[in-house]
């Protein structure tokens, strides 16, 4: 005859096991929501770096002179802009980094009050659209130009340089 005093041990073992497994399941399912915090940090680093680069390109090397950024945008010199931007970005103490960029310039057409974009630097072939790219911006004031470029005629204007930055 089986006595049911022993069955209690089994039942209690099962109960304890179920409690622990359930807790573990609940804990894992809640914490996993927050772990993507990891992906924020590389974004933050990249954004800070990009802002620094644009700010430094917009700092004239001497008092009262035009900054590099202003000169490149004003003259539409996208090759030199890209060269200098990537040069500043990829500079490290020991090695070089592998960052890529594209840029466009946003301006306002005063006559119709329409915001327009001009693709300044095309993305290279590492751009697939799936990268976690960050966007950094910088204001640039353009002086009156004799040769109207791609922006809103020759008038003095403020344009926004937007750079998309990603790690290949």
């Amino acid at each position: 005859m089986v006595n049911d005093g022993g069955q209690l041990y089994t039942m209690e073992g099962v109960a304890a096991g179920v409690i622990m497994l359930l807790t573990a399941y609940i804990v894992i399912s809640t914490t996993s929501v927050y772990t993507p915090g990891d992906t924020h940090i590389p974004d933050m680093q990249l954004e800070q770096l990009g802002s620094d680069v644009l700010a430094m390109m917009d700092t004239p090397d001497r008092e009262g002179t035009e900054s590099d950024l202003e000169r490149f945008i004003s003259a539409g010199d996208s090759a030199d802009f890209e060269g200098m931007f990537l040069d500043y970005c990829n500079m490290t103490a020991s090695d070089t980094d592998d960052l890529h960029m594209s840029a466009n310039v946003t301006y306002r057409e005063a006559s119709s009050n329409v915001i327009k974009e001009h693709l300044f630097v095309e993305p290279d072939n590492t751009w697939t659209g799936r990268e976690s790219a960050v966007r950094v911006t910088r204001w640039v004031q353009l002086d009156y130009r004799i040769n109207p470029g791609t922006y809103d005629g020759s008038r003095t204007q403020a344009v926004l340089v937007e750079v998309l930055l990603w790690r290949a």
Binding site: L8, Y9, T10, G13, A16, M20, L21, A24, I28, D38
Partner: peptide, 30 residues
């Protein structure tokens, strides 16, 4: 020491081992 106690304790231990083995995985990303 009855067979029933052994069975109950084994179930408990198995569950404990499973849970403990989950914990480092929980911490790995952090």
């Amino acid at each position: 020491m009855s067979l029933d106690f052994l069975a109950g304790f084994t179930i408990f231990m198995l569950a404990l081992i499973m849970v403990v083995s989950m914990v480092p995985g929980l911490l790995a990303g952090l």
